[in-house]
Amino acid sequence: MKPEISESHTISVLVDNEPGVLARVIGLFSGRGYNIDSLTVTETEHEAHLSRITVVTAGTPMVIEQIKAQLERLVPVHSVMDLTVSGPSIERELALIKVEGKGEKRVEALRLADAFRARVIDATTESFVFEVTGRTNKIDQFISLMKPLGLSEVARTGVAAISRGVGGLSSDS
């Protein structure tokens, strides 16, 4: 068999916002041994009771095709879109990062935060909480820079993603 390389895909899933729908999606991934690198869920269309799940997963092309087919056959799923292959798309993640420290390190942390366009949203004399948004690797990099400067806690939202330009994921398909 040809050795197949694992690749990362960002998949958007539009689902009915009903009890258990997230468990169905997560159960599908764990039950069939697929990876979840990031998962973001919230209601996006209140009137229509629709939620959007953005999942970043990795697998061989055959596995990615399976993941999409398996998601599509779940009863409460309206539509599935592989943003990685369906054209240009944007991905963003938000992180809240707490850094504790005094003196030089504090100043350095602030300077780097500025370079990353991270905002200070809480401050005490011994700590900052930064808010930073961007692609996953930007946030990863910011966190690694904060480590020697007193990084104490991180909260991340996971990836939200959307296609560029006109059209996208809709509930009528």
Binding site: M62, E65, Q66, A69, Q70, E72, R73
Partner: peptide, 8 residues
């Protein structure tokens, strides 16, 4: 009839 059976 089940797309997930194909190429599995």
């Amino acid at each position: 009839i089940d797309a997930s059976s194909i190429n599995k």
